[in-house]
């Protein structure tokens, strides 16, 4: 038996629907069809009236979820692709994000964003939007990379009283597997995790880039370079102490993200280490992002557009020669 990252997302939703009558799922083609990626497969049948097809109206999908949460529901909104959440941007950042501070009333909404690139997906089905949403107050941004995290963090997102952007990486849907779901649900939003201990350099990353980082570490091990890999898991709030503790051990920091370079998660990680841990650094902190262009369609261009194990290896070598 094995379970994929995508199945973990489906199972977490099934469990939430089973355990809490106030949970419902709203999105395009998620009912009888089971969702563009099948993240809600068979759920409409199992939970009649609670897994609802929406019109192609991202603004109204989020707006209606805000209203429903004011009336005691805990909506899960599925965007068909993270890219289309741009059409619901205003409701997410200005309406949902501002609600608690303005009125003191919290909105328990989970918005699932099928995030990140896949070969052949092109400019409008590949975006990584976690940095964009992280810029706005009042939102929690999750970026799971493993089956356990996909499952636990989604259940936590649904249980939290605040709006959560749950960024599920499409590349990982069927590629990441585990033997089974976690036996016990554990809530760990806001906590990063060391996925590989090392003493020479800290790689801070999240989501699909975690696997490139781990592959790079394995490669570098052959050269006697010992890399520590930190998986952020939740990019907002950002677990600064875990990052600083790691940099204290290694003295070098490379932040890796599939998102665009201007601003963003990497920039935030580096800014925090530079201001709180400048004395810990033995070399200038560096970052690897995708290139500052729309995301290309052709698989070869796509591979060259984003950070890879090879580009991480190259960067680490440069940094340690410094």
């Amino acid at each position: 038996m094995s379970i994929t990252y995508l199945e973990a997302i489906r199972e977490a939703q099934a469990r939430a629907l089973r355990e809490n009558p106030n949970v419902y799922i709203y999105g395009q083609d998620i009912g009888a069809y089971g969702g563009a990626f099948k993240a809600t497969k068979n759920l409409a049948k199992e939970f009649p009236g609670r897994v609802l097809d929406s019109p192609i109206s991202e603004d109204a999908m989020v707006g209606s979820a805000i209203g429903a949460s004011l009336e005691g529901m805990r909506p899960i909104v599925e965007m068909q692709f993270a890219d289309f959440s741009a059409n619901g941007f205003n409701q997410i950042v200005n309406h949902a994000g501002a609600y608690f501070y303005r009125s003191g009333v919290s909105l328990p909404i989970t918005i699932r964003l099928p995030n990140g690139g896949n070969p052949g997906a092109g400019p409008f089905h590949s975006q990584s939007l976690e940095s964009l949403y992280a810029h706005f107050p009042g939102l929690i941004i999750m970026t799971p990379a493993t089956v356990d995290d996909a499952y636990n963090l989604l259940l936590e997102a649904i249980a939290l009283d605040d709006p959560v952007l749950y960024c599920e990486h499409k590349y990982l849907y069927n590629r990441v597997k585990a033997e089974r779901l976690p036996e016990e649900v554990s809530f760990s939003a806001g906590k990063a995790l060391c996925r590989r201990p090392g003493k020479d350099l800290t790689l801070v990353t999240y989501a699909a880039a975690l696997y490139d980082a781990l592959a790079a570490a394995t490669e570098l091990e052959k050269e006697g370079i010992d890399i520590e890999v930190i998986d952020l898991r939740t990019v907002k709030p950002l677990d600064t102490p875990t990052i600083l503790q790691s940099v204290a051990r290694t003295g070098h920091l490379l932040a890796v993200s599939e998102g665009w370079p201007w601003g963003g998660i990497n920039a935030e990680v580096i800014a925090r280490v530079a201001s709180k841990g400048f004395h810990l650094l033995d070399s200038p902190p560096e970052r690897l992002n995708c290139r500052d262009t729309p995301i290309p369609f052709h698989p070869d261009l796509w591979l060259a557009h984003k950070p890879s194990a090879a580009s991480i290896v190259k960067k680490v070598r440069q940094m340690l020669e410094w």
Binding site: Y24, G49, R50, S57, D59, A60, M61, V62, G63, S64, A65, I66, G67, A68, S69, L70, E71, G72, M73, P75, N90, Q91, N94, H95, A98, R102, S103, V105
Partner: peptide
Amino acid sequence: PKERIYPMVSHLGAATSLITGALMARRM
């Protein structure tokens, strides 16, 4: 919000789906 007078955001039109979702929820 608790007394069901929803505070508006400036962005015009945003309350249309807001109130629709609230009404859907009460029906659910």
